[in-house]
Amino acid sequence: MLQTVLDADFVGDATSFRDTHLTAYRFMLLARMLDDKCAGLYRAGKIHGGVFIGRGQEALSVAIGLALKKTDVFAPLIRDTAGRLAFGEPVVDAVRTYLGSVLGPMRGRDGNVHRGRPKEGYLPMVSHLGAMISVVNGMLFARRMKGVTGTVGAACIGDGGTATGSFHEALNQAAIEKLPLVLIVANNHYAYSTPNDREFACRNLTDKAAGYGVESHSVDGTDLSACLKIVGDAVARARAGRGPQMVVATLLRLCGHGEHDDASYIDPKLKASPAGRDCLKVAEEHLLRQKWADAAAFAALRGEIVREIEEAVAQVQREPAPDPFTEDWRAISTGHLNEGHE
């Protein structure tokens, strides 16, 4: 049963409630297993630098990935493997960027979560939190100037990112220009190791939107159904011309900041609270309860995903690494304006 759904393209509102959930679940599971694979490669010393996974944030992430059209703009954050896959990123792009393959979108020049294809509306983040939001604004602003209509741009950020100046400047800018921006805030309760009470003093992060005249929405980030609905509605509102929308999801990061981090600072009470539920398990139980899938279907899906990921990893491990001797070492596209090259 899962298989037929998985083969069908997701077509937004027109797809039935059940099919949407099954599609979302597949991307969540794919993301979880891809993240786990990358974490394993990291521990095996196969990945240079860090690995940053989205365990516990897949429901929110997949909801925004599915709510966007391929012609929209998406600026994911480091825990958005599910959203990236749902937006259309192939598994091989993620693996190539982690392993530094020269055939990947970043060609070994940038790595891990810093990947994207700007011309396809899929932005590769810089590490400076909040800085991607105004870039999404700019793409939406330019499209409006060019007469392109019906487009939406989503930017994702965490609770820590809402404390940056860039976040405030960009949210205010989007409000002034009435841009179709959807700002997804994953409040996973920790900015690296810093808890919420050292990051903000407002009662709820949605208060920040109110300050700029931006509509905001709260959602339980562990509940896939709620995420699909609230995020989907926010995207629809932005598309309908109601200006920027902010969605604040409450959830808990079920892993460290990166795979180097044991997350020992996470309060056990939070882990035991509703925010600490594993959204993937919650979704699975929901599918079982609704009889939309059974144990055999889940097992088959897992087997299929394992094969997909293993094939991608095996392929990328055979691909060439970047070569410093053929690298052109030019940071400027206008050839003669480069400095310092031999």
Binding site: A131, S134, V135, M139, L140, F141, A142, R143, E169
Partner: peptide
């Protein structure tokens, strides 16, 4: 910050 960020986004869109 947002002024330059907007310009970068617009440039990606060909402006």
């Amino acid at each position: 910050d947002a002024m330059v960020g907007l310009a970068v986004g617009a440039a990606i869109e060909g402006m």
